[in-house]
Write a protein that binds this DNA or RNA. Structure first.
Lengths: 223, 223
DNA sequence: GTTCATATTAACTAACAAGTGCGTTCACAG
DNA sequence: CTGTGAACGCACTTGTTAGTTAATATGAAC
């Protein structure tokens, strides 16, 4: 009863194209949001479809209706988180910046995104444990990342041309170094924390590492 | 019938202390080896106790006999892989080397170990998805890692004293940078490979990255 | 107001997977 | 021999879990 009212409101707020696709989209989105949490928290085989359903306002049957199964739901979740980070990264505007400053911006964006989206990191981990079986099937992911590499390539070229960057690293190399340094802190926070008895999430440590990683990448690129 | 014969042979080869503990140890070890593979391949909740049992020469009942459950088995597997890498790392002898060379050796060891033990990397990933619930309970892990940090600290001190290393990085920082760069290539090989359409396992790429990471860490430490 | 596609619910099932009860075998001590 | 305890296998229980069946509601369009 109550949720009907809610859904009518949301239909009014966001009208569908033809028919009342508002409620449907809400259900879809709600399922995806809950599933993202659940898959990130428990992994692919650890996540429970019933649990996901219970935590939405819809039913389990709807998950099968929209996503045709656990696998399909997982794939949709992956696609969603990758499309979000792609969008964030594509908003970078580096053209006015000097090469070193541009690199700093890229590192800071990556660092901040990873730190504030641990569920994204975990999902990527899940997919790697899964041997990339699902990401390979996502047509949307593949092409878009070429764009990011080309942005990186332009920055590197400018840096090399002005004599501040060395010429023997590829965009993929730089991307790997940046990703590795930012990703690991979040990805391995539990094991690294336990092994070395430290808390990487502490604000002071985090801020210091942010500066440190920016610096490390700049040193890496210096002639 | 056949396996009895096999076990008698192995008993003869490796006699137990009092009773015939040879076969027992063999069973334990065999279970652990299979379970390591299985947990690394399918994750904690994805691994099947029945499957592990089927792939050993013993039965499922023995897994419960020795490890008291899936959880206990997983913990034993974690302990085993961590103790192995600890052993490898403790064999490092750096005292004769100049600081930069010592750092190079540490990086190369980490790189080579990670590359040749992807199942270790995956298990660490699994444990992080698991929020470190098990590694916290492993008393054996915690203390031993202090030793590795102290080795690192000595190298850094020597480097700082001789003016080749900057003084503002801690052993944990260096450890983090090295681990991140080596770990990520293996941990994220599937997603990174799919996104950027490259194969990090290719020998040429691997060799180049090995040199590149050694160089990156040395640049990171340079005054 | 009938039609039709979309959206939704409740109850069901078939398979699976963790964990156990219980009996057996084996080596050796007495 | 025989008693004992560790090492082992078989078959079972019990709860869970992905996925389904079938019936129904909704609302736009005609």
């Amino acid at each position: 009863m109550i949720y009907r009212a809610v859904r009518k409101v949301s239909t009014a707020v966001r009208p569908g194209k033809k028919r009342a696709s508002g409620p449907a989209q809400d259900s879809r989105e709600e399922i995806l949001a809950v599933a993202t949490q659940e898959f990130a928290q428990r992994g692919l085989s650890g996540a429970r479809v019933d649990e996901i359903a219970a935590r939405t306002r819809t039913s389990k049957r709807m998950i099968y209706y929209y996503f045709s199964g656990k696998e399909g739901l997982y794939r949709a979740v992956l696609e969603r988180v990758y499309s979000e980070i792609r969008q964030v990264e594509s908003q970078l505007d580096l053209d006015g910046l000097a090469p070193q400053a541009a690199i700093a911006r890229i590192v800071e964006l990556t660092f901040d995104y990873d730190e504030s989206h641990p569920e994204f990191i975990t999902l990527v981990n899940v997919e790697n444990i899964n041997r990339g079986k699902s990401i390979g099937k996502l047509s949307s992911v593949h092409k878009r990342y070429a764009h990011i590499l080309s942005v990186m390539a332009r920055v590197l070229e400018r840096g090399v041309a002005s004599g501040v960057f060395r010429p023997d690293v590829t965009p993929i190399d730089v991307r790997l170094v940046i990703a590795a340094l930012c990703y690991f802190r979040v990805s391995n926070r539990y094991t690294f924390g336990a092994l070395f008895d430290c808390n990487l999430a502490e604000p002071a440590v985090r801020a210091r590492h942010r500066r440190m990683i920016v610096d490390a990448v700049q040193r890496f690129l210096k002639v």
